[in-house]
């Protein structure tokens, strides 16, 4: 009988996936199944946490262009 596991399917760029794997490597408590370069399954309860961690991580790596305030 096939098995079903509950989770959140995440589809993203390979670069983002690399960061997710890096976050997961600390405690191995996010990823349920690593499917391919652009797809993985995350624990449902940890998804919001992952989003926050990812945003933090990206803030360090990506510089936003200054917003022009001219009207």
């Amino acid at each position: 009988m096939p098995k079903a596991s509950k989770g959140v399917l995440v589809q993203c760029d390979p670069s983002i996936k690399a960061i997710i794997c890096k976050i997961d490597a600390e405690r191995n408590d996010f990823i349920i199944e690593d499917l391919d370069d652009e797809t993985l399954v995350i624990k449902e309860s940890k998804f919001a946490d992952l989003q926050v961690r990812l945003d933090q991580e990206l803030k360090h790596t990506i510089r936003e262009p200054e917003e022009s305030d001219s009207e």
């Binding site: 959140v8 995440v10 998804f47």
Partner: peptide, 8 residues
């Protein structure tokens, strides 16, 4: 990332 809750 695009996310979809569900079952594998």
């Amino acid at each position: 990332m695009r996310h979809t809750p569900g079952f594998l």
